[in-house]
Design a protein around this nucleic acid. Structure first.
Lengths: 193, 193
DNA sequence: CATGTAAGTAAACAAGTGTTCACATCGTGC
DNA sequence: GCACGATGTGAACACTTGTTTACTTACATG
């Protein structure tokens, strides 16, 4: 699994990786692959599972730690980006395969993202200001936020690993965009059609 | 070029296509490929160029036609989505390769998107309400809008080609999200840090 | 110690791959 | 009418690919 993910992080797309390339990098003979996965797709799904499981752990931790407050946004953004930097390869994989992968992989990632959106919408509902909105609108706001983060993530990962000032600019931009969304969300009225 | 794009629209990722598959679908012998492109990458770049050029044409037309008004947002969204539906394969290709493709292709698409963002920011500047904001903030708003459209586009293209009600739901969602962004943008103050 | 299971191995297979070459066929402009 | 450039052809090349087979090794559990 590490071999596969490191190849993807190095710029290859998962779909173009060959079973033999992976076993070669893993220092193992091709036939050994079948001891662990019956398919390249099965490997891919396992990678999605593992990376998303770790990410969910982080988010759950952040949710219990963090209190709503003034600088909640910029704090969340910077801890999230720290985590991304500590797990670049995993995010590379997810970003690449979100739309680029095979159908089952794309579906798995879409499912995970939908899960994040639903959770985030549930978080929103705890704020008095949002508790009046229908669930549909909360999810629409949540997906707007998540998509924004994911998009910026894609740009961030295109940068070389060590480029601190460009990273700072991107992190600023993300914070601002999230602020815009939050302000727009605060002004949102469900009847406003 | 049509052969390549149709394979991608059928679910394959461009990077996993073989030269021979493409020539086979094009009804031509493999050696003929080299009469037109020296590389698969060159083909890919040509596809990016062509599809984006067509898209720019549409946008330029829309810009001269459309007047600012009440239902400007939903009108833009629906004409854009109509265009997307008329050119599904092209957008499939762009969506897939935006992050999934080889480095030169990703860069080409990123360049195009940056172009759209800059143009859109210039459009914003014509509105009296936005004309005061620094260019940086306008581009940050523009990229938020563009990224939102692109994200929703990805979800839309995952649907089977004929699924009118799900499409309607997605188009509604996009319109709402754009409205949120616009309202957030109207509330935005550059000093607001 | 024995035994069973999980992991790795070497070799072989047909099939597909990118690229090259010399050669054929067309339509255009001189 | 003919030379030319662009396009297409068929064959050949050296490789890589996924998968299967029977065989070995490590190791924990009884």
């Amino acid at each position: 699994m590490e071999a596969a993910i490191s190849q993807v992080a190095a710029g290859r797309s998962y779909g173009s990786l060959s079973l033999r390339e992976i076993t070669r990098e893993a220092g193992v003979v091709p036939a050994s692959f079948y001891r662990h996965f019956k398919d390249m797709d099965e490997l891919g799904l396992a990678l999605v599972d593992e990376t998303c499981q770790q990410l969910r752990k982080l988010i759950r931790a952040a949710r219990t730690t963090q209190l709503p407050g003034d600088n909640m946004l910029s704090a969340s953004v910077s801890t999230f980006l720290l985590y991304v930097n500590a797990n670049r390869s995993a995010f590379h994989f997810l970003t690449r395969e979100r739309y680029g992968g095979s159908a089952p992989i794309r579906e798995a990632i879409a499912r995970e993202i939908r899960g994040f959106v639903v959770d985030l919408a549930a978080d929103f509902a705890k704020f008095p200001h949002f508790s009046q909105l229908p669930r549909e609108d909360l999810e629409m706001l949540a997906s707007l936020l998540v998509n924004t983060v994911v998009s910026i993530l894609g740009d961030l990962l295109e940068l070389p690993a060590d480029h601190p000032d460009a990273k700072g600019a991107i992190s600023d931009k993300l914070t601002k965009q999230m602020r815009v969304i939050v302000m727009g969300g605060l002004a949102w009225r469900p009847a406003n059609k």
